[in-house]
Amino acid sequence: MENIIKSLEEKFNISEVIKKSDNLNILTVDKKLAMSLIIYLKEIEKFSHLVMLSAVDWLEDGKFQLSYILNNPEKKIDLIIRVFISREKPEMESIHKIWVHAATDQRELKEMYGIEFPESPRLNDDFLLEGWDNIPPMRRDFDTLKYSEETFFPRPGRQTYETKEYMKEKMYPDEKNSKNKKGLKDA
């Protein structure tokens, strides 16, 4: 693993290397060199298994982090490739030609974070959400509580009641007027 990291540091402009364990390292690479690094890892270093493509929203820094988790099944080692892209115009090259199934990841990231992957197949098709007209929901500035309050409340049948009072009213509607007549005690 150390040899691989050394050769990568020589060839690509790797800004940060974090060693998590003997078989997991985290590399940070510039957006421009990311694609060539990924192709190099796949073709030369045999990191043939794309575990996942994920994104993290660093709202305070104005950046999205794309994480490509790659695995080498022969040497049994993992690499997390981190690429930071601007939050204002998030766009990254598509890797669906290297791993076909990455198209699904990219479709989800487009929907959930609004990150563009030009040329990725069916990128704009709805994946999990249908007819979504708000900002992408996995972004940190999307407020779930506010959204649900606006969307789901108030709506007939969604009022909240004080259980004790509500049941009392339901079961003994006349109680207020003729409490003593029925001889019922307060619950």
């Binding site: 974090i18 996942m52 994920s54 993290v56 994480s67 993992d78």
Partner: peptide, 20 residues
């Protein structure tokens, strides 16, 4: 602060969590 990937073998194959 940190990040990790933890995997196991589920009945369907590799299953993992990426946590930041």
């Amino acid at each position: 602060k940190g990040e990790t990937y933890q995997r196991l073998e589920s009945s369907r194959g590799e299953y993992g969590f990426y946590m930041v």
